[in-house]
Write a protein that binds this DNA or RNA. Structure first.
Lengths: 208, 208
DNA sequence: CCTCGGTTGTGAAATTTTTCACAAGTAATA
DNA sequence: TATTACTTGTGAAAAATTTCACAACCGAGG
């Protein structure tokens, strides 16, 4: 369960989980084949699985389905989670309009925005609410996770509202850097991904 | 320069760079204050700066502007880079419509899509081209970086086209996992960020 | 039943990364 | 100039993570 697996191991297992989702359960994969698919050395994969527990295998490798169930059991990925989105801009509405298809693991159940007009005008299957109702709605709808897609200056307050509603984890796409000791927060920033990328390219000659 | 700084250090320096960008150059920051802003322990920041080189400081800390210049010099973040976007869906067009404002570091100069209709209908300041022209356009426009926002099945081919055009780095938002030995590739997957988040929450009780 | 060609699982070594502790520096103030 | 109250920078210790190497396992085919 959660006897503190190394963070990197968790991250790799998530990656593996993803490719397994899109694969026939009967497929048999060696650690080497799997490694090619996710760009991870075979021995690292074996070590990860070894540290995480005991997974069934044969002399040909692992069955996709069994591996999937194993990771599933580890993190309980099977159970669906309720997710809300704060900020109905271009990015926020992209989550609402094309909900993530990950074996139904995540269900977007509500959207919030300070702009009442937007809420009324936008048509969506997902119910939309004004931002000030956030804490209450999160509580009454028993929402587990929040996606923040608001401008930087509103990010901190949005997080507070989500916390107040009792949310367990936040994925923050705003430019603000959020963090909290009580709940899990993950910051994702596009420009920064680009920047990190360029920092990793050794001989990038920059033109105009 | 690029005498292989630890990956994590690079990542943290990018984060620091981000907060510095939105700050008065004259602000003086101690490693502790800076640490609070980015959720990194003070000693880690000092160590990072120390392995990266020699940055000016006083008994009160670092001047934002000088720190910025230092990181800048390290990775040459000052020079603008030309970026293109493949796939003009909801996500792709969000890059084209609200270009990242990061001190003009990234300039979106072209968009590509297989759907010719979309290209003709959509109005945008950024020129849009059919996907099959990708390699040629990238070459002639001297584009440095590519953002992939196409469906999974088109991702691999898109990467090949970008490589063919001579691109240096790719930020991949498609569900496919891309990797290449010649160019830098970074995969970003929203559902997976959510999944990782939940995996890190120890006592997440999952309801319906 | 033995061997061959493949695989996993894992202790131990190697490496990387973080943390710690503290000498040394600096400005301000008396 | 001496003192105080901050700071940085960094070698060395500690911890975390990855890599390695190889015993053990498995199934198929003589």
């Amino acid at each position: 369960m959660s006897f503190q697996l190394p963070v990197q191991t968790v991250s790799r297992l998530c990656l593996i989980y993803r490719v397994l989702l899109g694969m026939d359960r009967e497929t048999v994969l060696s650690s080497a084949k799997l490694g090619k698919l996710v760009n991870i050395p075979a021995h690292t994969i074996r070590k990860d699985l070894s540290v995480a527990g005991k997974v069934k295998s044969s002399n040909a490798g692992y069955k996709a389905g069994e591996l999937l169930d194993f990771i599933n059991g580890l993190f309980n990925f099977g159970a669906p989670l309720r997710v809300c989105v704060a900020g109905i801009g271009l990015l926020g509405s992209s989550f609402i309009k094309n909900p993530v298809q990950e074996g139904g693991q995540f269900i977007i159940v509500a959207g919030f925005d300070t702009n009442i007009n937007k809420i009324e005008v936008m048509k969506s299957d997902v119910p939309l609410f004004p931002a000030y109702e956030m804490a209450d709605r999160i509580r009454e709808m028993r929402i587990d996770l929040g996606i923040i897609a608001v401008p930087a200056q509103a990010a901190e307050m949005t997080m507070q509202r989500m916390k107040e509603g009792g949310i367990k984890g936040i994925l923050n796409f705003s430019p603000a850097i959020l963090g909290d000791k009580d709940i899990a927060v993950r910051n994702v920033h596009f420009a920064e991904e680009l920047r990190f990328l360029t920092a990793m390219i050794p001989d990038l000659e920059k033109g105009v």
